[in-house]
C-alpha cells in the first residue's frame, strides 16, 4: 500500500499505527450502496436526528475509488451480484464492508432463487448487522464497532501477525463460546 506498510516493526511502526488508525477511523467515507429498504434507513441515518456527519461520514462517495466503507444496505439479487463485486474491487485498500440488514447478511426472509443468500458469498464482510431493517441507532452502533476495529488495526508486518493470530483464535471458537471483547479485532 503505502510507506507505512514497509516500516519495520518497532516503536516507530506502533506510533504510526496509532496515528493511522485514528485518522482512518475519523473519516470513513461510505460508498453509496443502498439497494432496498435498508437504504431508506441509511438515508434516515444521514438525516438530522441520527447524524452520520458527526463521524465525518456524511460525504458518501458515489465513486468507489474514494470510498472506504461499503455498507451493503438491502437485498442483493443475482443480477446485482456482479455489480457489487465490481464496486468492491474498485474500492482501494483499506476497505471495510458492513452488511446491513438480514437480507445482506444471510438472504433474510427471501430464501429463493433471486437473492444471494448472504453477501459474504461475494465480498468479505467485516460487520454483520441484523435487522429488517435495522434502526439507525443499530447502524451507528455497528459503525462505532467498526471504528474500534479500524483504530486497532495494525500495519505492515504487525498486520500479518495480527491476521494470523485472529485467524487461529477464530478457528478455535466453538459455537457456544462468545469471543471476549479484547479478541474482537480485525
Amino acid at each position: 500500500m503505502g510507506l507505512e506498510e514497509k516500516l519495520p516493526s518497532g516503536v516507530l511502526l506502533t506510533s504510526v499505527e496509532k496515528v493511522a488508525g485514528w485518522a482512518r477511523a475519523r473519516s470513513v467515507w461510505p460508498a453509496t450502496f443502498g439497494l432496498a429498504c435498508c437504504a431508506i434507513e441509511l438515508f434516515q441515518t444521514g438525516g438530522p436526528r441520527h447524524d452520520l456527519a458527526r463521524f465525518g461520514m456524511e460525504r458518501a462517495s458515489a465513486t468507489p475509488r474514494q470510498a472506504d466503507l461499503m455498507i451493503v444496505a438491502g437485498r442483493v439479487s443475482q443480477k446485482m451480484a456482479p455489480v457489487l463485486r465490481q464496486i468492491y474491487d474498485q474500492m482501494s485498500e483499506p476497505k471495510w464492508v458492513i452488511s446491513m440488514g438480514v437480507c445482506a447478511s444471510s438472504g433474510g426472509m427471501f430464501n429463493n432463487y433471486a437473492i444471494v443468500q448472504g453477501v459474504d458469498h461475494i465480498v468479505p464482510v467485516d460487520i454483520y448487522l441484523p435487522g429488517c431493517p435495522p434502526r439507525p441507532e443499530m447502524l451507528m452502533d455497528s459503525i462505532l464497532k467498526l471504528h474500534d476495529r479500524i483504530m486497532n488495526m495494525k500495519l505492515g508486518k504487525n498486520r500479518d501477525r495480527q491476521i494470523t493470530e485472529l485467524e487461529e483464535a477464530r478457528l478455535g471458537l466453538t459455537p457456544l463460546r462468545l469471543a471476549a471483547p479484547e479478541e474482537a479485532q480485525l
Binding site: A36, S77, K79, F110, N111, N112, Y113, I115
Partner: peptide, 11 residues
C-alpha cells in the same frame, strides 16, 4: 431494471 428482483410474488 431487475437489479432488485426478489421473487416476492413467488415467495
Amino acid at each position: 431494471i431487475g437489479y432488485l428482483h426478489t421473487g416476492i410474488e413467488k415467495n
